[in-house]
C-alpha cells in the first residue's frame, strides 16, 4: 500500500514536471516567430495568423491579414514592403456607408490598446498592397516592415496562403 502511494506520487510529480516542460517549450516558439522573424529587434508586439492572400490572375492589388497584440499598448505608425513586391501599402478599414454599401477607408495609424487583440480580417481591416510588382503566389513569402511608436521597427516575413 505504502509503496503504491509512493509510486503514485512519483507519477504525479513526473507528470507535473513533464507538463511544465511542455508548456515551457511551447510558449517560447509560439511567440518567437512573431517577435523575431526577419532582421529586426523585438518590438514587443505579438503578431499572429499573419498572411497575404494569393492574388487572382491579372490583379495588381493584394491584402494582408493578421492579429496584433501589445501588452503595454502601442501604435502602428508606418509600414512598407520592398519595391519588388508592391508599389505602396496602406492600412485599410471596410465600413458600411449610409446606403449599406461597403466602403474602404485608409487609416493613417493603427492604435493597439494594451492587452487587446486587434484583428485585421476580411470585411474588417487589412493592409492593402497596391501596384503588385509580381503575383502573390501561394507558398511564397515576402518581407514586411512595420514601425511601432514605442516598439520601433520590425521586419517580418509574410507567408502567402488562402487563410
Amino acid at each position: 500500500m505504502n509503496r503504491r502511494t509512493h509510486s503514485l506520487s512519483c507519477l504525479v510529480l513526473v507528470a507535473i514536471v513533464g507538463m511544465a516542460a511542455i508548456t515551457g517549450c511551447t510558449q517560447q516558439p509560439g511567440r518567437l516567430p512573431a517577435a523575431s522573424e526577419g532582421a529586426a529587434r523585438d518590438a514587443g508586439v505579438e503578431i499572429r495568423a499573419l498572411h497575404a492572400r494569393p492574388s487572382p490572375d491579372g490583379v495588381t492589388v493584394g491584402a494582408i491579414f493578421t492579429t496584433f497584440r501589445s501588452d503595454a499598448g502601442d501604435t502602428l505608425v508606418g509600414l512598407s514592403v520592398p519595391a519588388e513586391v508592391a508599389g505602396r501599402i496602406e492600412i485599410h478599414s471596410m465600413v458600411a456607408n449610409a446606403e449599406g454599401q461597403m466602403e474602404m477607408h485608409e487609416i493613417p495609424v493603427l492604435a493597439l490598446p494594451a492587452g487587446e487583440d486587434v484583428e485585421l480580417k476580411p470585411g474588417g481591416m487589412h493592409l492593402m498592397l497596391f501596384q503588385l510588382a509580381r503575383p502573390l503566389v501561394e507558398g511564397q513569402s515576402f518581407p514586411l516592415t512595420l514601425r511601432f511608436a514605442r516598439g520601433g521597427e520590425k521586419v517580418i516575413e509574410v507567408p502567402i496562403r488562402e487563410d
Binding site: 491579372g58 490583379v59 492589388v61 491584402a63 485599410h92 474602404m104 470585411g123 492593402m128
Partner: peptide, 13 residues
C-alpha cells in the same frame, strides 16, 4: 470589381 482586395476575393473564395 477585380481590383477589390478584400470583400470580392473573400466571397468568391
Amino acid at each position: 470589381f477585380t481590383h477589390c482586395p478584400d470583400l470580392c476575393p473573400t466571397t468568391l473564395g
